[in-house]
Simulated assay, not measured.
Amino acid sequence: MKPSPTTTTPSALITGCGKGGIGHALAAEFRRHGYAVFATLLAHEPTEHLKEIGVATFVADVTNNDHILKLREEISVVTKGTLDVLVNCAGIAYTIPATDTQIPEVEKMFAVNVFGPMRMVNIFHPLIITSKGKIVNIGSVGGIVPYVYGASYNASKAALHHWGDTLRVEMKPFGVSVVNIISGEVSTNILKRDQASGRKLPEGSVYMPLAKEFEGHVGRVPNTTPPEVYARSVVAEIMKKNPSAWFWTGASTSLVRFIDTFLPRTTWDRLFIRWFGLDALRK
């Protein structure tokens, strides 16, 4: 069943709602609170997990301008030209040492993680301004700390955080709130792209002494904050009249926030060198 918004039904549009991911969990939580929820998926992704909870699904790629323009037209008809919440959730990961970065791979990731939210806001902001709504960017502690093998992904999230900061200031005169969600590690399938490709260190990499450890890192199954627990905290914050500009939630965010606020920047160097066994490279 698809939700049928009325003038009193709040609406939420969430990008990147593949099964088992953060977007899926957020869609379910918004529905639990009575929102009319619109979710985007890629053409190859199933829709049953969303339709069965009353979420309206749309095939739309955030890197495709025509897709998003069509999406705005379709949603605008249903909501009568308003949108209460836009959640920029679509994202992909790219795991590799910074020195082994392949630029085409990073360009693909930035197209989703950074330019995707920019495109969504550019196209949907009139609907959000009309409702004096909220824009929510799903960020990461990776955008705060130098998480090893994640330099490019970290950079994409740092860019999203700081773009969102300026957007927040610029949208205030219109009564629109902008929230950066600083996410800890959540048990989702964001690593599936790296895992499906069998990501390995390239021939000649200076990190080859850690090749087995790197492959184990790519193949790991995060077992931290469950998506539904994460979604409850995020939606509760978004529903506040005045949500936080930066909302930290998920595993390890308290520790990250403390170290980033009170300790020297190079504290992370010592921690990550030890945790990832980088001292082996000195031999």
Rank of each mutant, 00 (worst) to 15 (best):
R119S: 01
M109D: 03
T166I: 15
V37I: 10
G54V: 05
R257E: 11
V229H: 04
A56C: 14
A280C: 06
F110T: 06
G164M: 12
G23Y: 07
P226H: 07
E45M: 13
T57P: 00
V148M: 12
A159S: 10
L201Q: 00
E237N: 12
L26T: 00
E105V: 09
K70I: 10
A12K: 03
F276I: 05
A39M: 06
T9D: 08
A39Y: 06
V112M: 11
A111T: 13
W268D: 02
P209Q: 08
D61L: 06
A93P: 04
I53M: 11
A245C: 12
P227T: 10
H33W: 08
Y207H: 12
A98N: 09
V176H: 01
T95Y: 07
H24R: 09
V62C: 06
S76T: 15
R199P: 02
I75H: 03
G133D: 07
F276P: 04
G20C: 05
V78E: 08
L167I: 11
A39N: 03
I129Q: 00
P209E: 07
E73L: 05
G23W: 05
F124P: 00
N223Q: 15
L86V: 06
A111W: 05
K241A: 15
V114C: 06
H33P: 13
A151F: 07
G164W: 09
M208H: 14
G216W: 01
T40M: 06
I138S: 03
P46N: 02
I75E: 00
V256Q: 11
K283M: 11
H67E: 05
V221E: 13
V141P: 01
M118G: 01
P202G: 00
